[in-house]
């Protein structure tokens, strides 16, 4: 069977230890050249980029290397006065995705006062639809990712009461498939990233009981490939970010021991770039802050103690979640 499995082979000379200092240097130096072509190409997701980098730095205990004041000022200037939503960068349109990233960053900095919280609440509540779903912005695209953004941001602001939580849950459950997984819309294919969003929504709304836990965990465990890495859907290549999306979901389902942790850890470590620092999707590819965060967060879930404890629902340091007195649900059966 092996000749047919789409997978990668880990090389003998791959990194086998965690190169923390390299990763910290990599993130500290990332995107300093603002006239750079790459910088302009990725400006449309800048706010999330800041969240990925800062969270990774927090997990390594090195967040002091990030330009805190500059970041906070940037976030303030990205809030749209009218709608209350936050955009990815100055001049771009507000969107649910970047509103969440902004709230997460400010929550980690304990500086939620830097934005108009009422505006954020107004923005998110205005995007909920009659069926409980959420638009991503005023143009009306629906996706379970946006449901997760809404409940996560509002819970970080302690304002979950401003939306219809029951309907939110009902909509997410309407996206469940026979295999126990979830897609982006009702009837859409199961996808590990969207499963994380839906399980996370239920974890925050404390409705983990509504999941088909065994079916779902079974499907999630089958994402592990011979290399140890995880894919996000059947017959796809492994990708480091799924070590977060699959493992955090299994963690909320309390079934993390269903995968082979040792080979997964080897895969994650092999995705490090030993020269530049940072993690990539697969061994040998170019690293980026997105995969760097999910590599570190994945290792934290696997119990690596040189990284701070990460919360599986929020993908933020557990200490932040504790400080905010949030208790996302984990399944106990």
């Amino acid at each position: 069977m092996a000749f047919n499995t789409k997978d990668v082979v880990l090389k003998e000379d791959r990194p086998r230890t965690l190169l923390l200092q390299k990763h910290s240097d990599y993130l500290a130096g990332y995107g300093l050249d603002k006239d750079d072509f790459e910088f302009c190409m990725t400006e449309y997701l800048r706010m999330s980029g800041i969240y990925w980098s800062l969270t990774a730095m927090e997990l390594m205990g090195q967040s002091s290397r990030m330009p805190k004041d500059e970041i906070i000022e940037f976030i303030t200037s990205c809030q749209d006065k009218e709608s209350g939503g936050v955009s990815a960068s100055i001049g771009h349109d507000p969107h649910m995705l970047y509103t969440l990233s902004a709230v997460q960053v400010l929550a980690m900095y304990d500086r939620l006062d830097a934005i108009d919280v009422e505006g954020v609440v107004r923005y998110i509540t205005s995007l909920q639809q009659d069926d409980g779903s959420f638009f991503g912005d005023k143009w009306g695209e629906v996706d379970t990712r946006f449901s997760f953004c809404a409940v996560m941001a509002l819970s970080l602001l302690h304002r979950l009461d401003t939306i219809n939580v029951n309907k939110t849950v009902d909509f997410v459950l309407s996206c469940m498939n026979f295999d126990g997984g979830f897609g982006s819309k009702p009837g859409s294919e199961s996808h590990a990233g969207l499963i994380y969003c839906c399980v996370g929504t239920l974890s925050i709304c404390k409705r983990m009981d509504a999941l088909k836990a065994d079916e779902l965990a079974w499907w999630l465990c089958e994402r592990q490939l011979p290399s140890g890495g995880l894919n996000g859907r059947p017959e796809k290549l492994p990708d480091l970010c799924y070590s977060w999306w699959v493992m955090s979901s299994l963690s909320m389902l309390n079934r993390i021991h269903w995968v082979d942790k040792k080979s997964l850890e080897e895969y994650i470590l092999a995705c490090q770039d030993a020269e530049t620092g940072g993690f990539s999707d697969r061994p040998g590819d170019i690293p980026d802050p997105f995969h760097t965060l999910f590599g570190l967060a994945g290792l934290s879930l696997l119990g690596n103690t040189s990284i701070k404890l990460v919360n599986p629902t929020y993908c933020m340091p557990q200490e932040t979640i504790d400080r905010l007195k949030l208790e996302p649900q984990v399944l106990h059966i």
Binding site: S87, H92, D137
Partner: peptide, 13 residues
């Protein structure tokens, strides 16, 4: 060149 720019699609809308 870069079709991921949501805000530019919005301008078209």
């Amino acid at each position: 060149i870069n079709p991921e720019l949501t805000s530019l699609w919005n301008k078209r809308r």
